[in-house]
C-alpha cells in the first residue's frame, strides 16, 4: 500500500513541469500488466531480437488541479459536501483521475454509500441516474484486484462522472448502492455473478445470468474462456484463449 501511495502523491516537480495544464493526465497509475518482448507472443524462440524488452503498462494516474471544465466544480462541491458531513475528503476520495475527457473518482469502499448519497442528493451535484455497475478484474493490481465501476449521470446538469471502488481478491466486499440507486439491483447481481464481488446490503444477492448451481465466476481473468477445440479433417483449431496471442 505505502509504495503505491508514494506514487500517487502529488508530485510538485512534475506538476510544475506540466505547468498545471487543465485536465493534466497523471502518468503513474496502477501497474496492470508487464509486457515482455515486442509482440506479446511468448511461445517459440526470440526470432525478433526484441524478446528481452520488459515494459510495464500503467493506467492513467491521479490528476492534479485544476481538472478543467466543470470537473473542478463537481470536485469542489463533492469535497465541500463531504466536509459538511464531517468526512475528510482525502479519506473518502483516494484519488481523482482525469483522462480522455472523463473524470473518475476513486472512492474508499467504506465511504462509497455516503459519497453516492451525497452525489445524488446535493442540489449542486444531483447525479440522479446511475447507469449501473461494471466489474473489472485486474489480477496484477495487488491488493485491489476487483474494481467496481459506476457511471453516474446528472440530467439536471447534463454531466457524467465515474466512481471506481476496489476490493482485494481475498476480501471481495463492497457496499451495495441499491438503497441509493434501486436500479443497481440487477447490475450488482450481475457483477456478483461474473466477478464474485459481494455487495454488502444488497436485498437478494444471487446469481442472475448463470444457472444457480454454477461454480466460479466466469468473467474473472483467472477463469478460462471455456471454449473447446474445433476438429475437422485431421486439423485441430484451439479455442480462442488457447491460441498464440499477440497482446
Amino acid at each position: 500500500m505505502s509504495e503505491r501511495d508514494e506514487q500517487n502523491k502529488p508530485n510538485p516537480e512534475q506538476d510544475l513541469n506540466a505547468q498545471n495544464l487543465p485536465g493534466q493526465r497523471g502518468e503513474q497509475g496502477e501497474e496492470i500488466r508487464v509486457q515482455r518482448g515486442m509482440f506479446g507472443a511468448n511461445n517459440g524462440g526470440d526470432t525478433t531480437g526484441y524478446g528481452g524488452l520488459v515494459r510495464s503498462v500503467r493506467l492513467p494516474g491521479a490528476a492534479s488541479r485544476p481538472y478543467g471544465g466543470w470537473f473542478d466544480e463537481v470536485a469542489d462541491e463533492l469535497e465541500g459536501a463531504l466536509e459538511e458531513q464531517d468526512l475528510l475528503p482525502e479519506n473518502a476520495i483516494e484519488k481523482t483521475v482525469v483522462d480522455r475527457g472523463e473524470i473518475t473518482f476513486h472512492i474508499a469502499r467504506e465511504h462509497l454509500l455516503r459519497v453516492a448519497r451525497t452525489l445524488r442528493d446535493d442540489p449542486a451535484l444531483r447525479f440522479e441516474l446511475c447507469t449501473g455497475v461494471s466489474g473489472v478484474h485486474y489480477p496484477a493490481d495487488k491488493g485491489r484486484e476487483l474494481h467496481a465501476v459506476y457511471h453516474l449521470r446528472s440530467i439536471t446538469h447534463n454531466r457524467l462522472i465515474r466512481l471506481e471502488v476496489s476490493a482485494p481478491d481475498d476480501d471481495p466486499h463492497v457496499p451495495s448502492l441499491v438503497s441509493v440507486y434501486p436500479t443497481n439491483d440487477w447490475h450488482e447481481r450481475e457483477t456478483y455473478d461474473f466477478f464474485g464481488l459481494i455487495f454488502d446490503g444488497h436485498p437478494a444477492l444471487t446469481r442472475i445470468m448463470m444457472p444457480d448451481d454454477w461454480q466460479g465466476f466466469p468473467q474473472r481473468k483467472d477463469y478460462p474462456l471455456g471454449g473447446i477445440a474445433v476438429e475437422y479433417k485431421g486439423a485441430q483449431i484451439p479455442a480462442p484463449d488457447q491460441r498464440r496471442s499477440y497482446s
Binding site: M210, P218, Y223, P224, L225, I228, V230, P240
Partner: peptide, 12 residues
C-alpha cells in the same frame, strides 16, 4: 455448433 460463441456459456 456453438458458432462464434466458443465459450463457457453456450452449449456447443
Amino acid at each position: 455448433s456453438g458458432g462464434m460463441f466458443n465459450n463457457y456459456a453456450i452449449v456447443q
